[in-house]
Design a protein around this nucleic acid. Structure first.
Ligand SMILES: [Mn+2]
Ligand SMILES: [Mn+2]
Ligand SMILES: [Mn+2]
Ligand SMILES: [Mn+2]
Lengths: 220, 220
DNA sequence: AATATTTTTTAGATTAATCTAAATTGAGCT
DNA sequence: AGCTCAATTTAGATTAATCTAAAAAATATT
C-alpha cells in the first residue's frame, strides 16, 4: 500500500530538483542530492516507474507523474508543517529542525496532519521561509531574490534561505541573521563580492557565497 | 549506531512481556506480540544478543540487559509522550493515537523529546492511563484497581481481567464489556455489592464477584 | 567523423528483515 | 527411562535497498 521511506525520499528529491513541476531530472543529480550511488538511483527509478509515480526512460532522466507530484508535494507539506511545530511550539532553532522533519514527514496519517495544520494556525511558510503547500498541494511562491543581488544602499527583509543544512544556518545564527530581519547593504566588495551590511544598528560582514544563499524581499 | 525500527520494536515487546524488569520472555510470546513468525524472532534475538541488548540462550528465552532496558524504557517514554501530544494538543481520540505513536516513538532526538515533555507540562500518564517514564527511565506503576472498588459516580476504563477462562470472558462479551470500554458506576447494591453501570449510554448490571475480576483505571 | 570523456546502466554482491518447511530440543506424562 | 508433543531453532528462500566494478550509451572535443 504505502510507500517506503526510501521511495518517498526519492520522490521528494525529484520534486526539489525538477524546479518546474514537470522538469526532467538526471540520475546523477538525484544521486548527489541523496548522497547515494548512481547505480542505486537507477534501480529505484525503475521501481518508481513501475509504480507509475514517475516517467522514466533509460539514459533520459525522470520526471514526476501526476500521482508522484501529489505524493511529493504532500511530503513537502508534512515536512514544513512539522518544522513549524518544532520551532513555534517547541522552541527549537531553525538550524536543528530540518533533520528531524526529514523523519517526521514520513509519518502516515492524514487526520494527524490536518489537525497539526489547524493547531499551528494554518501557517503559510516554514521557519526557513519556504511556502507550505495546502491540502490540495497548491502554494504561493513569493518574490524572493538572493541578498547578493541587492545593490549598495538597498534594504531587504530576510524571508528565506536556499540551503537548510545545519552548518550554514548556524553560521547565520552566529551573524545574528534570521527570518524577518531587515538588512541594508552598505558596501559590496568589487573583487570578491563580499558584503558589509547594517542590521539593527550593527555592522555585519558576509561573504558573497553566503549572501547568494540568503533570500530577501526588497523593502523601501 | 542507532537501532533499526525493527530492533526497537522487539526491545519494546520484550519489555512489555517481561512484566518484572528482568523477567524472561519466550520466543513464541514475542512472535505473538509482534504478529510475526517464531523463526523471525529467533533471528532477531540472536542479533540483539550480539549487540548485548538482551541476554539470550537458545531454547531458554530472552531478557533485557541493562542497556536494553534503558533503550526500551526510552521508547515507552517517547511513545506515551507523543500520545499525550496527539490527544491533548491535537484533539485526537485515545483510540486512534496508539498506531501513530508506534511510528513517532522511533524519531531520534533527545532534545526534541525533552522539549516535547516540557511543552506538554511533564505529564505523568498517557491517554490510556499508562505511566510515562521520566528521563531517567523511572516511572510509577499505574493505578489498576478492581472495578468493584470504584464508588458510586466514579468512572473507569477497563484495562484487563483477573481471570481469562472462557466462561468468564463469554459472560463479559454478553454484557458488552471489553478492554478499553469506559464505564461509570451508577449504583452499588449494599447487600450483595452488585453494580449498575452506565456504558456508552446503556445500563449494564454486574455481579460483585464479576466486578472484582475486572481491572479498571479510574478516569476523570 | 573519430575519439575521448562523462553519464548511466547492468552485473554481481551484501545486509536486514522477513517467510515456510524441516529438524531439533526440552518438558511433561506414562 | 522412554515417549510424545509443543516450542524453538535451523535451513533455505525472498524482497528491499544498498554497494563496487564493468559495460554501454550519450555527449563533448578534437
Ligand atoms: Mn525523509
Ligand atoms: Mn524548511
Ligand atoms: Mn514502533
Ligand atoms: Mn498508550
Amino acid at each position: 500500500m504505502g510507500l517506503s521511506y526510501a521511495e518517498e525520499n526519492y520522490l521528494k528529491a525529484i520534486l526539489k530538483l525538477s524546479g518546474s513541476p514537470d522538469g526532467t531530472v538526471s540520475t546523477n543529480a538525484i544521486a548527489a542530492q541523496l548522497d547515494t550511488s548512481a547505480a542505486s538511483v537507477t534501480d529505484m527509478l525503475k521501481k518508481l516507474s513501475d509504480k507509475e509515480l514517475i516517467t522514466y526512460q533509460r539514459y533520459k532522466g525522470a520526471s514526476l507523474s501526476e500521482e508522484g507530484q501529489r505524493v511529493a508535494t504532500s511530503l513537502l507539506r508534512k515536512h514544513r508543517l512539522w518544522e513549524v511545530f518544532l520551532v513555534q511550539s517547541l522552541g527549537m532553532t531553525w538550524d536543528e529542525v530540518h533533520e528531524i522533519a526529514e523523519e517526521l514527514e514520513h509519518i502516515q496519517s492524514d487526520r494527524l496532519i490536518e489537525r497539526l495544520d489547524n493547531f499551528l494556525g494554518h501557517p503559510k511558510f516554514d521557519p526557513h521561509g519556504d511556502p507550505i503547500p495546502n491540502k490540495q498541494g497548491r502554494y504561493t511562491l513569493r518574490a524572493q531574490i538572493p541578498l547578493s543581488t541587492l545593490v549598495s544602499g538597498q534594504s531587504g527583509m530576510i524571508i528565506g534561505v536556499k540551503e537548510d543544512d545545519s552548518p550554514f544556518l548556524k553560521h547565520l545564527n552566529d551573524k545574528g541573521l534570521s527570518i524577518g530581519k531587515i538588512v541594508r547593504v552598505l558596501t559590496i566588495d568589487e573583487y570578491d563580492h563580499g558584503l558589509l551590511l547594517r542590521m539593527e544598528g550593527d555592522d555585519v560582514v558576509l561573504s558573497g557565497q553566503v549572501a547568494d544563499h540568503i533570500l530577501v524581499k526588497p523593502v523601501a
